[in-house]
Design a protein around this nucleic acid. Sequence first.
DNA 1: TGACAAAACTAACAACTGTTAGTGGAAGAA
DNA 2: TTCTTCCACTAACAGTTGTTAGTTTTGTCA
Lengths: 197, 197
Amino acid sequence: MAEVMTNLSRKEQVIRMAAELFKEKGYSAASMRDLAQKLGIEAASLYSHIKSKEEILRTLCFDMAAEFRASLSEVEKQNVSVSEKLRLGIIGHVKVMAKDLTASAVFMNEHRHLSQPYLRDFLLLRINYINRFKTIIEQGVSSGDFKKDIDTKLAVMTLFSSLNWMPAWFSPDSTIEPEKLGQQLADMLIDGLKQKA
Amino acid sequence: MAEVMTNLSRKEQVIRMAAELFKEKGYSAASMRDLAQKLGIEAASLYSHIKSKEEILRTLCFDMAAEFRASLSEVEKQNVSVSEKLRLGIIGHVKVMAKDLTASAVFMNEHRHLSQPYLRDFLLLRINYINRFKTIIEQGVSSGDFKKDIDTKLAVMTLFSSLNWMPAWFSPDSTIEPEKLGQQLADMLIDGLKQKA
DNA sequence: TGACAAAACTAACAACTGTTAGTGGAAGAA
DNA sequence: TTCTTCCACTAACAGTTGTTAGTTTTGTCA
């Protein structure tokens, strides 16, 4: 038990460092020797902890995916108005990202380096997640909460684009809390910039 | 003269193919042998046309940057309302991207592989461009066109995030014209999703 | 035809890639 | 003590990387 804990802890340390490196240099440009150096060990020693470079990427991508899905499931259960549901979905997404900005950045930008069949699985998970948001928006259009002439595909892609670049510019030592940031983002996307006449 | 044309044409062909490859696999994962194969020649033959792999990336990034800046300068000259100016800026940005989606994707996702001092120069250009958009939004807040409680930094980053992921999901054979897409995007960001009460 | 430039070729380089095999030390449990 | 597990090591592999030097083919124009 204690050994398992220690092992996991060391393995997780490797994965965390790898996430930082992948975020900084990109998956392909980050070498196992770079990673080893960051940990103060030899490259070959990494393989006491992980099976391969790609296994690290898989872990990072699929763990994040699971968190996003869990967050959205929680929101879907709630019995609230559509625009509130969208708002909660956005806030949940932001919170998950904020919990680990580094892993989020890797999840967002490096997943394409997964090999098959993992890449396919990953993309399926992602499209499912996006479609669940799209459904919320469509419900809003039907119910009259949102404008009737909205292109829902465009809307949902815009939404995700805004969300997904957050790790690139949001600094972890920012004074603003994730909850608040999500709130503001939701406001902006739902209500727009313009002063109501 | 004719020789120069031919030379340029072939060099541009190399750069175009490289853009596709860089977009697909990422700059680091794309090898010069991959690129050569796409052109039906040997890797070493590429060096009759270009100085180095990074020179290609530089060309792609800085040429796109110049186009974005030119587009925005055009808009800034116009004597129109603030929200119209923002709208025009967005449409211009979308049009520039749509003219070459492949190069845009590289510009967006691969610029970090530039070495110094080019990377620094690139980032300075980018921040200048972003700040000019931010100024427009700030003017809108001052003039009362936009809401007073807007976080302009958040607003401008959200704007760019939405814009910048477009190359990733916008298909070139889409029926929608860039002009129209830019229009819709601007509507969404400025007016929001919500039906006005 | 001959000259010239563009654009391709072959061969090779040094460095770097992810990964494996096999080894040994350290620490805790028996 | 001895056994086991974790975690590091050295040495080496086969393949790939960007790039160079030098040469030959190709096409155009005088």
